[in-house]
């Protein structure tokens, strides 16, 4: 199982991205996307944004569950109050661990936002943030 995770800002601009593999069932946490699939991942998430924009007015939850499919891949979305989109591309249907992962990342994102030198839609380059996201991925996915 491999994952591709991206945070999209309010102007549909990516502000953070990373990929990782599963750590459950003896996984080593390394993403194993085929080399020709990796650039496709960004396209798939980008095209899912249109569907997120439709769903977000029907559902009031933060966690929108699986919003889009592409072949055997699924896109799950978590939408924050300030319209920051957390998108995760995954190949197996697991709902609860993904919710927990999103909740953790959401909290770390808000902490980033509390930094007065960070502005909405800015790229997140903090290495502590990166480490926290990977730790959450290791814990739940």
């Amino acid at each position: 199982m491999s994952f591709y995770f991206a945070i999209i800002g309010t102007k549909d601009n990516p502000i953070y991205e990373c990929e990782f593999g599963t750590s459950k069932q003896g996984g080593d946490g390394i993403a194993r996307w085929p080399e020709d699939q990796r650039p496709m991942n960004q396209f798939i998430l980008h095209s899912a944004l249109d569907i997120v924009e439709e769903v977000q007015w029907v559902q009031r939850e933060l966690y929108l569950k699986t919003v889009d499919r592409f072949n055997n891949l699924m896109v799950s979305c978590f939408l924050s109050a300030g319209n920051i989109k957390f998108l995760l591309l995954h190949d197996t249907k697991i709902e609860d661990p993904i919710r927990q992962f999103f909740t953790d990342v959401h909290e770390v994102y808000i902490k980033t936002l509390m930094n007065p030198f960070y502005e909405v839609d800015m790229r997140i380059t903090s290495m502590v943030f990166d480490a926290r996201v990977r730790a959450a991925a290791k814990k739940y996915l």
């Binding site: 977000q56 009031r60 939850e61 939408l79 924050s80 109050a81 920051i84 994102y109 936002l113």
Partner: peptide
């Protein structure tokens, strides 16, 4: 962001 986060699991976006 902060106030909606503090509402916890029952948090809902306003549409």
């Amino acid at each position: 962001e902060l106030l909606l986060y503090r509402e916890g699991r029952s948090a809902k976006r306003e549409t």
